[in-house]
């Protein structure tokens, strides 16, 4: 009970929000729009898996939005060139992993602060993409959208896949040594070193995996529409960080749980539709995200101060 307090309270807040919508804006629940909205969050969910691991290892990655855009464009170009979808997927994952590995190498082996490194790579990739594509939209060939399935089948497939990935990630984090190493390094890197774990390798691996997951998420996003927008990743980093932090991952590292990203992300994702349904302007999304991040760290700060005494 005590250890899952954060997850439960976020889930309760989400339930409350959904209940309020059910009472005051019942058409929020009409099936197809609901399904679409849910599917639209799945790429962020997959990226949030990576971000959770990054934060557990006591790092942060704010370049994921730019990585996402870059991967989306690469995937889009390859798909438009007629390559089969599995190849496109692999290429996107590979591109993401390379970008993640750059961050990882700089953070792990040069000991640079991850916030500054990823801030720099964020802008580098973002502007490189702009210079390269100049904001052009990419049209995808017809077979790509929803993997060539019907819309609802595609949506179901994406949701099922993303949820399965979270489940797999949660299982690995708990049941494979590597997952425990991530917790160990985030908890106390020096003690980890003494226990024979190489903290540099763990940090590098986590950043590379973060990139690979972003590559995967970019394809999951691309198949939802007939076009790829180079700006599709803008702001993703904050949404994903907020989802992880709200879901109970401590920014001080070591602690957190992948299941928390569900209520975390859904709560954040539903703020905007809820605002619209309550006839509040939708432009508050970013402000609310920022506020939510601050609230989460303030809550953590107060809790850890109390724990220290």
């Amino acid at each position: 009970m005590k250890r899952h307090f954060r997850e439960l309270s976020v889930a309760a807040a989400l339930a409350l929000l959904l209940l309020a919508l059910a009472i005051f804006a019942p058409n929020f629940y009409s099936l197809q729009p609901l399904l679409s909205r849910l599917t639209a969050q799945m790429p962020a969910l997959v990226a949030a898996i990576g971000m959770t691991l990054v934060i557990i290892s006591r790092q942060i990655d704010i370049s994921v939005g730019s990585q996402f855009g870059m991967c989306a464009v690469i995937a889009g170009l390859l798909a438009a060139a007629g390559l089969p979808l599995p190849v496109v997927l692999l290429a996107s994952i590979g591109a993401g992993a390379v970008m993640g590995a750059v961050n990882g190498a700089l953070v792990a082996w040069l000991g640079l602060p991850s916030i500054v490194v990823t801030l720099a790579t964020m802008v580098t990739w973002q502007e490189a993409l702009r210079l390269w594509q100049q904001g052009r939209l990419l049209n995808l060939p017809p077979g790509v959208q929803w993997f060539g399935l019907s819309q609802s089948a595609g949506q179901m497939a994406l949701i099922g896949f993303a949820v399965a990935l979270v489940a797999l990630g949660a299982w690995v984090m708990k049941n494979v040594n590597a997952g425990r190493f991530i917790h160990a390094v985030g908890s106390d890197a020096e003690a980890a070193r003494l226990a024979g774990i190489n903290p540099h390798r763990v940090t590098f691996g986590v950043f590379a995996l973060m990139g690979a997951l972003v590559g995967l998420a970019a394809v999951m996003n691309a198949v939802q529409s007939p076009q790829v927008q180079p700006t599709c990743g803008d702001g993703l980093e904050l949404k994903v960080i907020a989802a992880a932090v709200v879901g109970g991952v401590a920014v001080s590292g070591g602690r957190g749980n992948l299941w928390g990203v569900f209520p975390g992300l859904l709560l954040l994702a539903n703020v905007n539709p809820a605002l619209t349904h309550f006839h509040v302007q939708a432009y508050w999304e970013k402000a609310i995200q920022g506020l939510v991040i601050l609230l989460a760290v303030v809550a953590d700060g107060i809790r850890s101060r109390r724990a220290v005494r």
Partner: peptide, 28 residues
Amino acid sequence: PALFPDLSVAENIALRLETPRAWRRVRS
């Protein structure tokens, strides 16, 4: 004590005693 505060007692003991192999299944 130089323990991992965020891990369980059992895991702390295991990380000390086992050779660290990343891809081994954790037998909780």
